[in-house]
Amino acid sequence: MKSGSNLEAILEAGHFAFTGELGPPRGTNGEEVKKKASYLKGMVDSVNITDNQTSVVRMSSWAACIILIQEGLEPNFQMVCRDRNRLAMQSDILGAYTHGVRNMLCLSGDHQKFGDHPDAMGVFDIDSMQLINMVKQMRDEGKFLGGADIEDPPKIFIGAASNPFAEPYEWRVHRLAKKINAGTDFIQTQCVYNMDRFREFMKRVVDMGLHEKCYILAGVTPMKSLGMARYIASQVPGMDVPDSLIDRLKGAGKGKVAEEGIKFALEQIEEFKEMEGVAGVHLMAIEWEHRVPEIAERAGVLPRPKP
């Protein structure tokens, strides 16, 4: 094992992984993190802790990760390239690892223009690909990016994102290959809504044998409302929500849209369980953590295996 994390062990044992997500608060209320974590405990193998998601300042990802560890959950430390240079990134990785963090998700990060500090300087000292490679070098060679030796190097299970739905489509699978070559151990994809395109993407992944070099978790975010579906479809860059899904939610009728959204997510999860190359599901229940137990139960992924 590269890191010894629970997520790695689950995937290595060949279990269908099920991961969750938690957004830290916009303040200092650790109880809020604990409350959200309580819904996820026992339901998922690892919990992604977002890093100033949508470029809005929140409690630092590593700090919330530590709360999760204290609560008996395994965090997946998200790190974006927007807010830190290579020095800060490496020191945060050392610190997080020392506190028990074993998984990381390496991301570019949304542009700062979208957030609550649009005038901030975007750092982007290194990009997500270079971050992946840096964490790998730290782990496998025991060296900092600058070349110096690390005492007791951090052993991180390295995650990355992949968006099969953003142009240029043909390039996305090559970029995935590039991320794998850079050192990615597992992938969590962008939220999947267009199943046709995702099947196509996975077919190419399998044809290229990429699923044998890296674990791929399909991203699932249940639609809570028609407004949410329409917003994601039209306002979130790089998202692909087919009209057929919008129509289906619309057809569910008043008060039943959320249930229909969950049903669609459950159908997706069922298909992912059988889909070649898919090693698990990453459930991003945005501000809907309390519904995760129900979704996990109905998806038939409980109890979570103990590796």
Partner: peptide, 19 residues
């Protein structure tokens, strides 16, 4: 907009930048 050396990021929006 992110000065990526290994792009594109996942924010490509119908051929345009997410910004």
């Amino acid at each position: 907009a992110k000065g990526l050396y290994n792009g594109p990021c996942g924010g490509t929006n119908k051929g345009n930048c997410e910004i």
